[in-house]
Amino acid sequence: MTIAERRERERADRRRLITSSARAIAEKEGWEAVTTRRLSTEIEYSQPVIYKHFASLDEITKSVALEGFAELADALRVARESAASGDAVRAVAHRYCAFATAAPALYDA
């Protein structure tokens, strides 16, 4: 592994840490509790490190939302594929509602 590859992997890890921490805070306390100061405390990096990865809190929220869309798509695909013949729409609708109920901050993002 080259130094550039290692740095890119570490950068991706920090980015995931930021988004997962923002998501955890939002799920526990709501999006209004997600601030760069709070995130920097949670992840034990300075605020400038956060801004190296994301230009704003809106960008962090968008990143969390994109991850959420991927999770929702997977959940809906599984619901559709595992549904009994002719019952796919109902299974997908129930899974969509369950997803929104289980992760309201993610759904809100």
Rank of each mutant, 00 (worst) to 15 (best):
H94Y: 05
T35P: 13
A4L: 09
A26Q: 01
I43R: 08
R38Q: 08
F54I: 05
Y107F: 13
T35S: 14
K28C: 00
L106K: 02
S63W: 13
V49C: 13
A22H: 02
V49Y: 06
Y107A: 06
A12Y: 01
S56D: 11
E81S: 10
A70T: 12
A88I: 00
S21K: 06
R23P: 01
D87L: 11
V34E: 03
M1H: 07
L66G: 15
S82E: 12
R11E: 06
H53D: 14
S46V: 11
D108S: 08
F69R: 15
F54T: 06
K52H: 13
G30K: 07
G68L: 08
L66Y: 14
C97R: 13
T101C: 03
Y45V: 13
A75M: 10
A26S: 00
A55Y: 10
Q47H: 10
A26V: 01
V92A: 11
A93T: 13
R6W: 07
H94C: 04
G68P: 12
A55G: 15
S63R: 15
E42I: 01
S21T: 12
H94N: 08
E32P: 07
V64L: 13
K28N: 02
E44W: 01
A103V: 01
Y45W: 09
A70P: 03
L72R: 15
Y107R: 06
L76K: 09
R9P: 00
R80G: 15
D58P: 04
R6F: 07
D74C: 11
A100I: 04
T61R: 15
E27D: 04
S20A: 09
G86E: 04
A70H: 15
R77P: 03
R11H: 05
S56Q: 12
Y51M: 08
F99W: 10
I3Y: 14
D74V: 04
E10T: 01
K28R: 11
E29C: 03
A83P: 07
A22R: 02
A102F: 00
D108G: 06
V89K: 10
S21W: 02
I43W: 09
L72D: 09
A109M: 05
K52E: 13
A109C: 11
A93L: 06
C97N: 12
T36P: 06
I18Y: 04
A26G: 00
R80C: 09
R14T: 14
R14H: 02
D108F: 03
I3L: 09
D13E: 07
S56R: 13
I43K: 11
Y107D: 02
G30D: 01
P48G: 05
V78D: 10
A33V: 07
V78H: 12
Y45Q: 15
T35Y: 07
D74G: 15
V92L: 06
T101S: 08
R16L: 02
L39A: 09
R80P: 02
S82V: 03
A22K: 03
Y107N: 01
H94M: 05
L72P: 10
A100R: 07
Y107S: 04
S40G: 04
L66K: 15
L39Q: 07
